[in-house]
């Protein structure tokens, strides 16, 4: 399939990434090449085959509803690029 720069713009938007003009051209060409290669899967007839997300038939892996102590707030916030000692901070984000 044809990968257009418009499509690359769209998936950049979805991924929160931006590419400069030259990078975008390279990326468009590379993605087109990779996606073309992936199209070999169409040689295989997979009609009726259930898509497999987990290789093991594990199921119902559940936790009991028992409270454990939370992480110390100072330790969590220590990882953050911007905090005020109570909360993580970002530029205005309220609609």
């Amino acid at each position: 399939m044809k990968i257009t720069t418009e499509l690359v713009d769209h998936i950049c938007g979805l991924s929160c990434l931006e590419l400069q003009t030259e990078e975008k051209q390279d990326m468009t060409a590379q993605l087109e090449q990779i996606v073309a290669y992936m199209d070999v899967l169409n040689e295989l007839d997979t009609t009726g085959i259930e898509p497999m997300s987990h290789v093991f038939p594990l199921k119902n892996v559940l936790r009991e509803d028992e409270e454990l102590p939370s992480q110390d707030r100072a330790e969590l916030l220590a990882c953050a690029p911007a905090s005020d000692g109570e909360a993580f901070l970002v530029p205005k984000a309220v609609e």
Partner: peptide
């Protein structure tokens, strides 16, 4: 970036 974009594409 290449793999993120490829991944976003195949899921879009």
């Amino acid at each position: 970036k290449r793999r993120i974009l490829l991944g976003s594409f195949v899921l879009s």
